[in-house]
Amino acid sequence: MSTATPSSRHWRKPPFITNPLLRWGILIGCVVYAVWALYTLPFDWARIQEGMSRAQRIFSGAFPPSFERSELLIEGLLESFKIAILATLLGLALSVPIAFMAARNIAAKPIYLLGRGLIITARSFHPVIVAILFVKAVGFGPIAGVLTLTIYSIGFVAKMLAERIEEIDWGQVEALRSSGTRYVAVLQFAVLPQIMPRQIGLAMYQLDSNLRASAVVGIVGAGGIGATLMNAFGRYDYAFALAITLVIIAVILVVEAISGRIRRNIW
């Protein structure tokens, strides 16, 4: 059905949903749902007003940021770095074999399904949820952080790498096969060289992504600068908390710039 009549010479954008009844029905339905949701959720307006003034107190207390306890800050930051680097290395070491398992063109069907299953499992939970599980399992501290971010790294790196392996130039593989080269040596000399640039790029990306995530998972008890931040809040030391936040932003900007530059040069 067209909205443009034959007499009108201007083309009008056809609506996304052609049926007007359906179009208005969906629109009204959305509005009604939003109003109903707002109405039924337990908003306590009195408490929100109270909270506003508390937020104001926090912000005024936070200025100027205090770097008095900078040794704590540096310690937390270094721990975050350690967590991120260890998790990236561990994650990469596990991602490469899993990626090979999860590439349809080089893995047998059952192994492919296993590899895909591992990747889907690693991806299905947000790192914060994984971190909560690990903190429960191995206790507060950086080990929980390393384990969490290792899984986070596998979920991303193995998936992207597997997709890259599925796109390789198959001719190079056949060239080696035709000369009787064994399977593992074919992977080594025909597949690895083709995926290497992508792998290095992914490693750099994952390192800065892990650094960011390590601040978040620290908040639920998995060590690093996130834990320091949480402690500062716990002691109502808002000036220190602001200092930590500023440093986290600065560090992430710097790391992202560096890894971005390295990736650009490799890609």
């Binding site: 130039d169 190079q172 080696l176 000369s179 009787g180 080269t181 064994r182 000399f189 083709q194």
Partner: peptide
């Protein structure tokens, strides 16, 4: 092969050497 199928990112020397991998 018609499309040569050399491993593009490796050196010419290595590309020749890997002909030996099968034996």
């Amino acid at each position: 092969f018609q499309q040569f199928n050399l491993v593009g990112r490796l050196s010419v020397m290595t590309n020749v050497l890997i002909g030996r991998l099968g034996c």
